[in-house]
Simulated scan of single mutants.
Amino acid sequence: MRKRKKFKSFHETYKLITFALTVAMIYPNPRTEKYRIIYILFTALVVGSIAPLALAIFIDMYKCWREDDIINIIRHSTVVGPFLGGLFKMVLMFHKRVQAKQIMDEITRDHLLYNDFSEKYKEIARAGIHNSQRFSEKWWAVTVIFCVMTFPVMAISLNFYNHTFKSEPTKYMIHDLRLPNTEAELRFKSPYFELIFVYMVYCSFLYVVNFIGYDGFFGLSINHACIKMEMYCAALEDAFKADEGEVFGRVVGVIKEQCRMFRYIELIQDTFNIWLGIIFIATMIQICTCLYHITEGYGFDLRYLIFVTGAVIHIYLPCRYAAKLKVMSLETSNKIYCSGWEQVDDQRVRRLIMFMIARTQITVEITAFGMLAFDMELFVSILQSSYSMFTLLRS
């Protein structure tokens, strides 16, 4: 018989997310805080060193504005906006490093405890962890890599094909950018073309790392909250099957876990509150501008079609996770009511169950900016608003 794997700490269980957070220098490890501060300062120096490139982008956008060239303005903003958002995540994670570390410590604490539980609870944990590893980690990483790396891969493929099979090859940039106050064709001459091409490959890698780590961490955190709910509901059922003298103590233990779960959700809310608000606004604009570029741009562009698909998935997943948590929290009231409390005559236990049910009937929501609840209704609303903005742009 194959030996079951033991439950391990956060960084050992979710290695891909840990790697992405570490490479992006946003892993909340107190021992590396001084290095993360140095890295942020180093990043500021790097951004300052590419100020001529950033200035060229804004100058080009200004020229496009004067020429009523909305297509190129949207093209620039679609690519530059998310990259700057990745740098903002670095600052935001440093600001919320204590809360993020507490989330990881809580996940590690629970995982290690699962090793001493019975097989019934281990199966609940395995199913939840497998779901997180499959969707919040692996498939999310594949989605980000596919959406982002389409730009450099297509540019490399087109350059290779043109230089191999054409006598007068055409050069393709990852993101086309005109040099200010120069001829348009100068951007395809050496060494400008090669230097910018390599730099944009680096930007793509940084984009991938930031979005895999930070956004994936949110999904893992929500899924673990759902595991905690299933665990204490199962523990309550078993408590009522115990000896009469043990029931009260075991129910109190379940209540402590329930309170711990609510504190854990508050940590998630505090850690990702600002980020959820930013992606709500940014993704709505992103979907709108990508659709406009695809339909009104210079011919069909597969890269932006894939990119808009990624943007939809990017806002769908937080809404889906938050909706899952909301539904699960409401289901726990039914599970607690059906746990078998009527078989116990101890009035203390019955009063505790009333309070447990009343607490679970209060809807658990993950909000953006502390006021905008994330759920599937919000996802539909975002798509409708994006389409309304898109039709306004077209008119």
Rank of each mutant, 00 (worst) to 15 (best):
T13G: 02
K15F: 06
L21D: 08
Y27M: 07
P30A: 00
K34S: 15
K34P: 15
A56H: 10
Y62W: 05
D68M: 04
I70T: 15
N72P: 09
R75E: 04
V79H: 05
G81V: 13
M90V: 14
M90C: 14
H95V: 14
R97V: 01
D110F: 05
L112I: 15
N115M: 01
E119A: 10
K120M: 03
E123T: 14
I124W: 00
A127I: 13
G128Y: 00
S132N: 12
T143R: 04
S157E: 08
L158M: 11
F160W: 01
T170F: 02
M173L: 02
M173Y: 02
L179Y: 03
N181A: 06
E183F: 06
R187E: 03
S190H: 02
F193Q: 03
F193D: 05
Y199I: 09
C203M: 14
F205T: 13
G213E: 06
G213N: 07
Y214L: 03
F218V: 07
L220V: 13
S221G: 04
A234D: 00
G249C: 01
V252M: 05
E257N: 09
R263A: 10
I265L: 10
E266P: 14
N273D: 14
I278V: 15
C288S: 12
V312M: 09
Y316W: 08
P318Q: 00
S329C: 12
L330I: 14
I336P: 00
Y337L: 11
Y337C: 12
G340V: 09
F355A: 14
M356N: 07
A358Q: 09
A358I: 08
R359P: 11
T360V: 09
T367C: 13
G370N: 05
D375H: 07
L378V: 04
I382A: 08
M389K: 08
